[in-house]
């Protein structure tokens, strides 16, 4: 069984972002970019499944402009066997990403697709659910544990839901999106980074895959959130209780 993992290049999670003065978006020039943290977790899980002998190959897939290749190399250095880069210079919304993934699934025929539960830039939390819907495959979103049963061709997934942890059993092939607690992703070692340079990255375009990119969402503007007014430092618990009682009136 092959596993396909979708990875996204985003602004590094530790960077304090800046909104562009013309309100057209967030400044991405000269900003540190990294693999989306949830994608790292998804890739790690796929690699562990392969290492346990339940999968034969891990294919990393990413979409976007040329620079996305850096993120793909990181994925290859972590241990993905090969990669596909769908080259597209513009903005891709989750629905288009899901359609491209569907086209790739029809070529590669994986038994499992892993994605992160959300990208930390657009915070959409949609792509995995959409690809599952388009393929009519079952979905295990917000996964914190995945156990495959090769004989029964199922995956038992623990999901982080509002009220606690929900356990589902999915027939394969299936789509699983990773939550933070699924695993601790590995670091790529220097030898593996060197090895990754010789691994194959196949380049395709949406046209090659006969996917038409159209968008039904238009960004009107991007603004900074309202700033909170400056707070005060109190010197004692008594002063704090006094402020909460008499100034803020919340206790």
């Amino acid at each position: 069984m092959k596993i396909m993992v979708a990875i996204k290049r985003v602004i590094d999670y530790a960077v304090k972002i800046r909104v562009k003065p013309d309100k057209s978006g967030v400044e991405t020039n000269n900003v540190k970019m990294s693999m989306n943290p949830f994608c790292e977790i998804a890739l790690e899980e796929a690699l562990r499944i392969k290492e346990s002998g339940l999968a034969s190959e891990v294919i990393a897939v990413s979409m976007g402009p040329t620079q996305v290749v850096d993120t793909i190399r990181t994925g290859l250095a972590m241990g993905a066997d090969r990669a596909i880069h769908v080259d597209y210079p513009g903005t891709l919304y989750p629905l288009s990403v899901a359609k491209i993934l569907k086209a790739l699934v029809e070529i590669e025929k994986p038994g499992l697709i892993f994605l992160g539960k959300q990208a930390i830039d657009d915070d959409c939390n949609q792509t995995g659910q959409m690809i599952a819907g388009l393929l009519k495959w079952p979905q295990g979103t917000f996964a914190s544990k995945v156990v495959l049963d090769k004989e029964k061709q199922t995956a038992v997934v623990d999901r982080e839901v509002d009220g606690g942890l929900e356990t589902l059993c999915l027939d394969l092939p299936a789509v699983i999106t990773a939550d933070l607690r699924l695993n601790q992703p590995r670091y790529a070692t220097l030898p593996n980074i060197m090895k990754a340079k010789s691994k194959v990255i196949k380049k395709l375009t949406p046209e090659d895959l006969k996917v038409e990119i159209k968008s039904d969402i238009e960004v009107v503007k991007v603004t900074e959130p309202p700033k909170r007014k400056a707070g005060v430092l109190v010197s004692s618990v008594d002063e704090l209780i006094d402020k909460l009682k008499n100034e803020a009136r919340v206790v």
Binding site: I17, V26, I120, D122, D123, D216, V219, T223, P225
Partner: peptide, 20 residues
């Protein structure tokens, strides 16, 4: 026309839905 937070709430994005 809707407003939604992006980048962990460090920016607010106003979007227009233009689809069917």
């Amino acid at each position: 026309i809707f407003v939604r937070p992006i980048y962990a709430g460090n920016a607010l994005c106003t979007v227009r839905y233009t689809g069917s």
